[in-house]
Amino acid sequence: MSPSKVYYTDFHATLEENLLQKLARLVRAAGMEQIDFKNKFTAIKIHFGEPGNLAYLRPNYAKVIADIVKEQGGRVFLTDCNTLYIGRRKNALDHLDAAYENGYNPFATGCQVIIGDGLKGTDEQLVPIDGEYVKEAKIGRGVMDADILISLTHFKVHECTGIGGALKNIGMGCGSRAGKMEMHSAGKPYVETEQCISCGACRKNCAHDAISFVEKKACIDHDKCVGCGRCIGVCPVDAVQPAQDEAFDVLNKKISEYTLAVIGDKPSFHISLVADVSPYCDCHAENDMPIVPDVGMFASFDPVALDTACADMVNAQQPLPDSLLDKVPHTGDYFTDIHPTTNWRSGVEHAEKLGLGSCAYELVKI
């Protein structure tokens, strides 16, 4: 496969051009306007940031992209799907509150926010794919209803996948709660009995009669359970938990297969900002100091080349003094230095095999 073009610019600004204007110039140079946006529903997939975390992307960047889409006649919205874990983004109401709190609202971005998998994370579309691990991806219906997808990603380190790039933003981010469970888990959900309040919501919403009550505590029969994850979504006290026992390399590959389900049949474009490169995901309600200096803004039609280029550019930087990276031995790959059990290349290499793009790239600086 021939190298894909990845367009790049640094974070230097001038009196004539600020960073937001520079981002607009970057995506135009990379060809985003080649997409036919006229009257098309366009989803900008973004991570709104868990409140308390300050490393997430400023909403100003999203407004730049939304404005360009609107200039081209597109009907644009910002989106993400609900989280699997306990936090401020596990249902649409809390998720919207968190997004607004972090500045992602129509007044700041010029477009609406839609939570892609509905109120409780169960509004999903089953997307057949011929993956090695996934045969039917569970994607938020709001995402699949969009005609075009643009990923706007805060590139960072991740404790499970090595990198948090475009593939993870799309694949994991667009999965419904059941989809996220499928990616994270090799098994079925279980019940933390100490937390169970015997409300019966899980049993009421189980279509496979897999949930019973023993001594007034819910119990899941794994022989009947199909892993749909609805019990996780409806539990009011988060007593139902995913196993989260999948190997990290398999997790990365499942994310790539979910990415294929999202963008396989629709136009897409991908933007990553390598700034505030934190050692953990923006899903944390806190963030550690960056591990390297801010690198730049990147854009491409190829999410595989984009992730590879961003990772290579981070690895080319000097660690920031007193950062987490500065405190661990270096092997040449900062991501595995910080999280030794991860292998980010397993994800991009699998995505390349799926035809999502190329790990080979040509970096074009503007």
Rank of each mutant, 00 (worst) to 15 (best):
V234L: 12
A218I: 15
Y258R: 06
D265M: 09
D265W: 13
Q241W: 01
L273N: 02
V295D: 13
K217V: 10
G171C: 03
S198N: 02
A207T: 08
D276K: 12
C174M: 14
F301M: 15
Q244Y: 12
V274K: 09
S198T: 11
C228Y: 07
C219T: 14
G229I: 02
K216N: 10
H184M: 15
P189K: 08
A239N: 06
P279I: 14
P293R: 01
R177C: 11
G187V: 01
H284L: 04
K216W: 01
A305I: 11
K216L: 08
S256Q: 14
P303K: 03
T259Q: 05
D238H: 12
D294H: 05
H184G: 06
V237W: 09
P242A: 10
G229Q: 06
Y280V: 10
F298Q: 04
P293E: 08
V304I: 04
S185K: 00
D245T: 00
R203C: 08
S268K: 11
H184N: 11
F213A: 10
M181P: 05
Y258H: 03
D265G: 03
G264D: 11
K266E: 00
A186C: 08
E246D: 12
K266H: 01
R230N: 07
M297N: 12
D245G: 10
C235V: 14
A207V: 15
V295W: 04
D223S: 15
T259L: 01
G229D: 04
K253E: 05
M289E: 01
G175T: 10
V214D: 03
V191M: 00
G173E: 06
Q195R: 15
G187E: 03
I232C: 05
F269K: 00
Y190D: 10
A210S: 04
Y190M: 10
G229P: 02
G227P: 00
D265N: 06
D249W: 04
P242M: 14
P267C: 04
K224Y: 01
V262N: 00
V226W: 12
G171A: 11
F213G: 06
N252C: 08
L306C: 13
L306T: 15
V304K: 05
C283V: 08
G227F: 10
Y280L: 08
I197Q: 11
Y258D: 13
S278A: 11
Y190E: 10
E286D: 12
F301P: 05
T308K: 04
A218P: 05
D209E: 09
T259W: 00
V277F: 00
C281R: 07
A201W: 06
D276V: 08
C196F: 11
I197R: 11
L306I: 01
K204D: 07
C231V: 00
A247S: 03
A210Y: 07
L306R: 06
T193L: 08
V274L: 09
Q241M: 14
V234F: 11
C283M: 15
I271C: 07
P236S: 15
D282H: 02
D245S: 12
I197E: 05
C281A: 13
D209H: 13
D302G: 02
T308A: 12
V250F: 07
M297S: 03
E182G: 03
A201F: 01
Y280S: 15
P303D: 02
G227R: 02
C228A: 04
P189Q: 08
L251T: 08
A305L: 10
